[in-house]
Computed example of a mutant assay.
Amino acid sequence: MQRPRVVVVGSANMDLVVMTPVLPAPGETVFGSEFHQVAGGKGANQAIAASRAGAEAVLLGAIGSDSLGVTLKARIAASGVDVSRLRVVYGASGVALVTVDAAGENTIVVTPGANAALTGLTADELTAVRDAEVLVAQLEIPVQTVTEAALAARDAGTRVVLNATPARRLPAELLAAVDLLVCSVPEARAVLDGAGRPAPDGLPAELLAGLLGVVPRVVLTLGPQGAWYADRELPEPVHVAPVRVEVVDSTAAGDAFTAALAVAWGEGRDLVDAVRWASAAAAGCSRRMGASVALPERTEIEQLYAAGWPQPPGSPSDLLSPGTMET
């Protein structure tokens, strides 16, 4: 099978990760047990995850001129990602402060640094977008840059996967260029609110129905409750249960999911099956601590996929009525 070309436009940060028994409450100080410094940022994570999942991955992003930037570029490149177009701008690189508790839950504070300078895509960067099978983007860089990349992809016939995180309102021209939206419940509500549509507090069915009025395909992620896939051609949303593993750290599970989904779609998988495969990637990532260092290789994804769904995909039990959906 030919490796699909996946271009990721997004952030690159140095993650400063602290392990602690419990997440601190506002105003509280707790003792941490471990500290790690690893390459991260949703753009870098998803590019690395796409490479490990089997894609020819390209990262369009920006790093600072500091020592963190040098380390970031080297570590991303060591994971097989094409970093030849990664910009270096004067100043600090992006930094993420990550706290992870004993249950694998986390809090994250991001300082954009050089990521904020990723504006005005060059002709070479736009060519990379147009030559890809799939463009993947998130929202840790300026939204106008994401929009520019998505419009170029749409005009060239490149599929656009938007991971709408962190939650924010999005311009209509960006949403019009999205082929597949990946979002959590809070992110879904932000998208709907920005689009001038009701953002219900109820069942996923209501959120999915609203989102399909904005984009043609949606994956709504619900963490330990799995994910829902819906598109305008399906009579009902499809629930994909998570692969059960012992969770150590969920920090980059969403990035593993989005990247694997893009790779599977680029390989020509049916999107319901692609969501299953992506769920296996998220599970594999959750078994280890860290962000980019925890992202699974393709062999592990395949093993978890096979273990998670011994029955052929698409069985009638996968189609659930809105009244039975989990929240």
Results as ranks from 00 to 15, higher is better:
Ala123Trp: 00
Ala205Val: 01
Pro24Gln: 15
Pro312Met: 03
Ser286Thr: 05
Ala230Lys: 04
Tyr90His: 09
Arg87Phe: 05
Asp131Glu: 14
Ala209Glu: 09
Ser11Thr: 12
Thr165Ile: 13
Asp82Phe: 05
Ser321Gly: 14
Val248Thr: 10
Val218Arg: 05
Val88Ala: 10
Arg269Trp: 12
Leu162Met: 15
Leu212Ser: 00
Ala102Ser: 15
Met19Ile: 14
Val7Ser: 07
Lys42Thr: 13
Gly27Thr: 04
Gly202Ser: 14
Gly94Asp: 14
Glu187Asn: 03
Ala50His: 09
Arg276Ala: 08
Ala152Val: 13
Phe257Gly: 03
Arg130Gln: 12
Val238His: 08
Val218Glu: 01
Gly213Thr: 01
Asn106Gly: 01
Ala199Trp: 04
Val263Cys: 13
Gly308Thr: 08
Ala176Val: 04
Arg130His: 04
Pro166Val: 09
Ala132Val: 05
Met289Asp: 00
Ala262Ser: 12
Ala282Ile: 11
Asp101Pro: 08
Leu174Tyr: 04
Asp318Gly: 07
Leu304Ile: 00
Ala227Leu: 10
Ser250Ile: 01
Gln303Val: 12
Ala25His: 15
Ala188Val: 07
Glu187Ile: 00
Leu211Cys: 05
Met14Pro: 11
Pro204Arg: 01
Glu173Phe: 04
Gly104Leu: 12
Glu267Asn: 09
Ser93Phe: 01
Glu28His: 08
Leu320His: 00
Leu295Gly: 05
Leu203Tyr: 05
Met289Thr: 10
Val272Tyr: 02
Ser51Tyr: 03
Glu34Asp: 15
Asp201Cys: 03
Leu180Thr: 00
Arg75Met: 01
Glu302Val: 13
Gly268Cys: 11
Ala264Trp: 12
Ala260Gln: 10
Pro186Asn: 00
Ala57Tyr: 10
Thr111Phe: 10
Glu236Tyr: 05
Asn106Leu: 01
Gln303Pro: 01
Gln225Val: 13
Ala230Pro: 04
Thr251Trp: 01
Leu175Tyr: 07
Ala259Asp: 02
Ala252Pro: 03
Pro312Val: 09
Val214Met: 02
Ser33Trp: 09
Ser315Arg: 12
Arg298Pro: 02
Ala253Leu: 08
Val9Tyr: 05
Ala92Gly: 00
Ala55Tyr: 13
Glu125His: 08
Ser67Val: 00
Leu180Met: 07
Leu162Phe: 12
Ala280Tyr: 09
Thr251Tyr: 06
Leu180Ser: 10
Ser65Val: 02
Pro242Tyr: 01
Gly196Met: 01
Ser79Gln: 13
Val275Trp: 08
Val182Ala: 07
Glu302Gln: 08
Pro24Phe: 11
Ala253Gln: 04
